[in-house]
Every structure is written in structure tokens, then in C-alpha cells.
Amino acid sequence: MTEVSAGELMVAQAAGEIRDGETVFVGMRLPLIAFVVAKRTHAPNAIGLFELGLIRDRPADELLYTMGDGPNVRGALWCGPMIELMGMLQRGEVQAGFIGGAEIDRHGNLNTTAIGKDRQHPTVALPGSGGGADIASLAQRLIVIMPHDKRRLREKVDFITSPGRHVAVLITTLGVFRFHGGEPVLESYHPGSSVDDVRANTGWDLRVAANVHQTPAPSAKVLEIIRGYDPQGFWTRRGE
């Protein structure tokens, strides 16, 4: 079996955050594959929400590039207007949500809007919230997935797109942080990384769990599901 990529490791970790029977805002990219893994392993009764107006009780048959692709619509439990899905979120009926971000701070606040101090004239214009800020505001538990870089894991972000108060876990390309008392604590580092490596690439004073350990490799079954769903590694970027 080829070497496990950071993307695959992140997907496997993210899948573990979905509990059986939960209603989850899935989103795209790696979380989408995490939903597939969770559904086919420990969480067969999880329900996936896609904010444009789709609810699914089984994953789409093919790899998705956007949540509006045909394969995601076919076989949907429900499809309709976005306001009804967002209403579910505001009614408190969504247990967990996934989001990514360009920057995160040590309180879990995420920036996907703009790098730089002036939002109207930024250094880098990022795409914006989409549904991310709503999921962060209203889902009971937030799972954040993003690349690990000192410029991305910052003491303070330039713009709070998505408030961090519900962040439960941060999964990066180097490790996994669990939030305790609103602050990220390093729980595990991925194979090839280390506590020191994570510290060197993190922009805040690192807190480390007493039982910090290496992130376990995904099981053969989980890897098979990931590679079966995304054979070219379009989202998991195998070989990169």
C-alpha cells in the first residue's frame, strides 16, 4: 500500500468526529470524503446537509466537485430552498459542522474573508464566508480542517469570519488539536511530524496534552474507502 497522505490522514481523523445518528453540515473537499467514510464505518445513520438545499442519508455515488453536482442531487432525501436548511441550523437541530479556513487563531476564530487590515483593500482577498460563519455560529460542534502553517495558525486573525466559540477540534496537515476551555491543545502529531515540528509551525504558544501521541494511521478499510471514492486524489492530493 502506498504511503498515507496528509489529506487521507485528515479525512480519517475528521470521519472519527462524526457520531452515529448525528445531523452534520458536510461541506466540500475533505469533509465530504470524511462523511463518506463515517457513513460506511461507524456512523451509518448520520445525515448530511448541503447548504444550497440538499439533505442526504447516503453519500453520493461519485466524487463531487461542488455540492450542486448531479450525483449529489440524485438520490437526495430532500432538496429545496437554502433557508430551510439554515433554519434547521438556527433551530439547534444540527449537531456538528465542518469548515476550513485560511487562518485560525488560538480561540478558534477563522478568517476566510481577507488578509490585511483593510477589508475593502486587502493584501489578499479571500472568497468569504459562504455558509461557514453560519455553521460556526449555530452548529453545536465545529470541526475545522486546514493546512498547517505558521502564517495560518496565528495569535490573532485579521478578520473574524467565523467565530470560534463552538470549535471542538482542529485537524491540520501536521496534527490534531482538541479544544479545552476554548483553547487548542495538541492531542496528536501526524507521522513525519513531532511536537517540536508543530510548535515551530504554530503562531501561538503551544499547549500540549499530557498524553500527546502520534496520530494513528487510518485502517486498511478506511483507506480503501477514501481511495475508492477519490481515486485520483483530487481532494486528498495523494503524492503531493
Partner: peptide, 29 residues
């Protein structure tokens, strides 16, 4: 955000001047 623009258009659709919401509290949006 997706929800704020959806609610702005819903308010427009029903002729309401505004809609109160719990989303985006603590956001810079």
C-alpha cells in the same frame, strides 16, 4: 454569509423591513 443573504432576500420576499437572527454573533461580517 449564506444565511444572512438568504434572510435579507426572505425579508424582501415578504415585505418585512428586516429579519432578526442569531447567526453571525461574534463575527466581523
Amino acid at each position: 454569509s449564506n444565511f444572512s443573504i438568504a434572510q435579507a432576500l426572505l425579508a424582501g420576499a415578504i415585505g418585512a423591513p428586516y429579519i432578526p437572527t442569531k447567526t453571525l454573533l461574534g463575527s466581523d461580517i
